[in-house]
């Protein structure tokens, strides 16, 4: 029986959807690497993604332009993250409570405006999604071509962002300053680096990435918006950052691992395997806990992780 399931075509479609499903975890995780490296634990990724999903969907639906949708998602994700920046940096509020509040508020706002804009319809409004972009020559390679080179453009861009994020953080002074305000804000301050300014940047970039990922879910993956569209991916992304020890390339592997868990659940469900569906659906969430268990002790958290900075406290 097993040999009937585990065929070549099964693995090809499994790995191809692994890459697709890794995308909405990879993007917010990359964004949160900036934020967490700057010493801010932003738990409102889920809320930012939901806001990005509804904003991107609305823009794409009315303009018919998917790129405008992605852009709108990014802008709204960033705008929403500015609330976290004000709360955690300017007001030095408790970051866990601020993040929780913004998740509740974000879900509320997203569903409220979706209902106001689209009303209640028997069939949910849809957008035409991004076309699959087959990369010539490469996509014709048997097996590998189908797995790696037959996705929509956002998927490719997300994976390119891994390199860009690594480059910015490791090779530019901007990246260095972001890391400095998370590692030793007092020293950074004395060198003339504005701690608050770079923490704001780090949070806003995180919002930009999360908004893009939210828009990907609604217009690049599902083509509709639903209340539970993000389904915990924002929290999984936060866990991936810790699992990846704040490194972009490891975050890619982490996101792929979660992509695999989700893809495995979908594929096996499609094949009608004997394991109940609900138990398979637990897989990504259980994996998140396991990943945290394996990684948290080893991860070297930035020294000022989740600690507000004040010049007066010396």
């Amino acid at each position: 029986m097993l040999s009937n399931i585990f065929t070549v075509s099964f693995f090809v479609s499994l790995f191809a959807s692994t890459i697709r499903l890794a995308t909405p975890i990879l993007l917010p995780a990359l964004g949160q690497i900036y934020t967490q490296r700057a010493g801010i634990l932003n738990l409102s990724v889920e809320g930012m993604m939901t806001i990005g999903a509804v904003a991107g969907f609305t823009a794409a639906f009315y303009s018919g332009n998917l790129w405008l949708g992605i852009l709108t998602g990014m802008v709204f994700g960033m705008l929403y993250s500015s609330l976290m920046a004000i709360l955690s940096v300017t007001l030095r509020a408790n970051q866990v409570i601020a993040g929780t509040a913004l998740n509740i508020l974000g879900a509320g706002l997203a569903v409220f405006f979706y209902r106001v804009i689209f009303g209640i319809q028997s069939l949910p409004p849809q957008v035409e999604s991004f076309q699959m972009l087959k990369i010539s020559v490469l996509s014709d390679i048997p097996i590998i071509g189908v797995i790696l080179f037959q996705h929509n453009i956002i998927v490719y861009l997300a994976f390119l962002m891994v390199i860009l994020t690594w480059f910015i953080l490791e090779k530019t002074t901007f990246g260095l300053k972001i890391k400095a305000v998370g590692e030793n804000p007092k020293a950074a301050d004395s060198k003339g680096i504005s701690v608050n300014k770079y923490r704001y940047f780090a949070i806003l970039i995180g919002g930009l990435y999360a908004g893009a990922a939210g828009a990907f879910m609604s217009i690049g993956y599902l083509n509709i918006f639903t209340e539970s569209i993000i389904g915990g991916r924002g929290f999984i992304a936060v866990a991936v950052v810790i699992f990846a020890r704040f490194l972009p390339i490891r975050a890619m592997w982490g996101a792929l691992l979660f992509g695999l868990a989700s893809a495995l659940q979908l594929r096996l469900q499609a094949l009608g395997i004997g394991v109940p569906n609900q138990l398979m659906l637990m897989l990504p969430y259980a994996l998140t806990i396991i990943a945290l268990v394996l990684a948290s002790k080893k991860a070297e958290f930035p020294s000022a992780y989740a600690l507000p900075y004040s010049r007066k406290e010396r």
């Binding site: 409570i97 509040a101 998740n103 508020l105 509320g108």
Partner: peptide
């Protein structure tokens, strides 16, 4: 959802 919005706002104002 306005109830969720009010809830979120209340926590934000408290902190």
């Amino acid at each position: 959802s306005i109830v969720d919005i009010v809830q979120g706002l209340i926590i934000i104002f408290i902190i």
